[in-house]
Design a protein around this nucleic acid. Structure first.
Length: 454
DNA sequence: AAACAATTCAACCGCCCCAGG
DNA sequence: GCCTGGGGCGGTTGAATTGTT
């Protein structure tokens, strides 16, 4: 979405100029009297000539020492402004244009994990700047919140929920290697990223999950998740199994971080849900890398969409959701929260360590310790019906069972494959998408397929 | 066509951290 | 230990653009 700014080279008005100490050389603004008067630094949009001066300076002197730029080149910009201009616009290898679906998914995953750490997020997105990511995220978040939609994709939110429920809190997250994975669109590419150096556990770290989820996420799903927010109720066939819990998901997935939320615990109101501090790294490092405490329970809504003003305040606990948000389908009184709990209780192991039992046995088993889930319990879960479709479908990518995704799921929604890219590349289509295409909830395995798996 | 609203994004601001004196 | 300057980061602003009525 690069947009030219016609007014990119305005003459700064007096109020756009600030007095600065130091001396400029060789600029028409400077004169002999500059010896006595402070240099007036310019503000506002950069001109092409200013860009050229800055680039020339960096070419000859390298990056850094930004305050010297003004002194050495006479560029009437403060060091900070020079640095910002360079890092955000002039430095080489900057990616311009829209974020790719993979990038957008990764941003969501990184944000779920890091919060508003734009610079850290940018480190995982080569060619992208923190400012760009911040703008993207804030815009997207604001839009989704206004629409009353989840800010995070279900797989991210659910993963966070499961991570918490499984006390999945003692990781030292390996750093994401910068670059190649971001363009990786195949499972192989993403899997090749593997666990980072120093990561010894058999359990995948969240960012590894992010990778695996990225790999497991089909192009369709990614495109759907990343698409602009819809503004009406789900209606398409694929969304119907999920529609019952749509309201829950709206709440549960609402971003715990408003665009203007100060950096910090993502769910400050959920102390019992904060992740433990068992990591070996210093608290600061942990703060930077550990999954923020994010509850599957619907927390206080940060920002009500305008169309919900006047509606009852959302429940602030899972129980309230279960009790107060009577879903239309009473056959499915249990909220997804409860189902999550049940699934967790049944499994009792890190879901990431679960794989379908080899040989199609009647259980899920944990590959690294042999724990298995009895068929009887699976059957009990199965009675949950098609909401479990969704639940398990969301879980299964984390289970590492890509082969369980039924081909039918993909074929059911083949029509939405390129929605995102289309919308992305054609701004005029933004907002025209069907809401039910959002979040990529199709492509999940059917509950019957769990039976097949198990 | 005009007015208004919404969105985008470059740039600024203030705060913080860190290194060096 | 204190001070200062450089640099980085996250939040915010506001002009330009786009969309809607």
């Amino acid at each position: 979405m690069e947009r030219s700014r016609p007014g990119a080279a305005p003459t700064p008005s007096p109020e756009e100029e600030v007095a600065a100490e130091g001396h400029a050389h060789g600029d028409d603004v400077t004169g002999q009297e500059e010896e006595a008067t402070p240099v007036v630094l310019k503000k506002g949009p950069w001109t092409a000539s200013e860009d050229a001066m800055l680039m020339d300076h960096v070419r000859h002197h390298g990056e850094g020492n930004w305050n010297a730029v003004q002194r050495m080149t006479g560029l009437l910009r403060c060091g900070k402004s020079c640095r910002l201009r360079w890092t955000n616009h002039l430095r080489p290898n900057l990616k311009k244009g829209s974020f790719s679906p993979d990038e957008e998914l990764l941003i969501a995953q990184l944000h779920a994990q890091l919060g508003n750490k734009w610079a850290r997020m940018a480190a995982h997105l080569p060619g992208r700047t923190d400012n760009e990511i911040k703008n993207y995220w804030n815009t997207r978040t604001k839009r989704r919140q206004r629409a009353g939609l989840p800010v995070y994709p279900p797989e991210v939110q659910l993963h966070l929920a499961l991570s918490k429920r499984c006390h999945y809190d003692d990781y030292d997250f390996p750093p994401l290697a910068s670059s190649p994975q971001l363009s990786a669109t195949t499972t192989t590419d993403v899997q090749a990223l593997g666990a980072g150096p120093g990561y010894a556990s058999s359990r995948p770290a969240p960012l590894d999950l992010a990778r695996s989820q990225l790999a497991a996420t089909t192009t369709q799903q990614t495109a759907q998740f990343l698409s602009p927010p819809p503004f009406s109720a789900p209606s398409s066939p694929w969304a119907k199994p999920f529609a019952r819990n749509a309201q829950y998901f709206q709440l549960a997935h609402s971003s715990p971080v408003s665009p203007s939320t100060p950096t910090g615990p993502v769910h400050p109101a959920m102390p019992d849900l904060s992740l433990g501090g068992h990591g070996a790294r210093a608290a600061a490092a942990a703060d930077q890398s550990r999954l923020p405490p994010l509850s599957p329970s619907p927390g206080p809504r940060v920002e009500l969409p305008s169309n919900q003003y006047g509606q009852p305040a959302p429940p602030t606990s899972a129980a309230a959701v279960a009790a107060g948000l009577a879903l239309p389908d009473h056959q499915n009184a249990a909220s997804l929260e409860q189902m999550l709990q049940e699934l967790h209780d049944v499994i009792k192991v890190e879901p990431q360590a679960l794989v379908p039992a080899s040989g199609g046995g009647a259980a899920l088993e944990r590959h690294d310790c042999g724990v298995s889930v009895p068929e009887s319990r699976i059957s009990g879960l199965q009675r949950r019906g098609d909401d479990m479709d969704t639940l398990f479908g969301l879980v299964h990518p984390a289970l590492g069972a890509p082969e369980t995704a039924p081909a039918a799921a993909a074929s059911n929604h083949s029509g939405s494959t390129s929605r995102h890219s289309t919308a992305d590349q054609n701004p005029s289509t933004v907002g025209n998408s069907s809401p039910d295409q959002d979040w990529g909830l199709d492509g999940v395995c059917q509950w019957s397929n769990v039976s097949r798996i198990c």
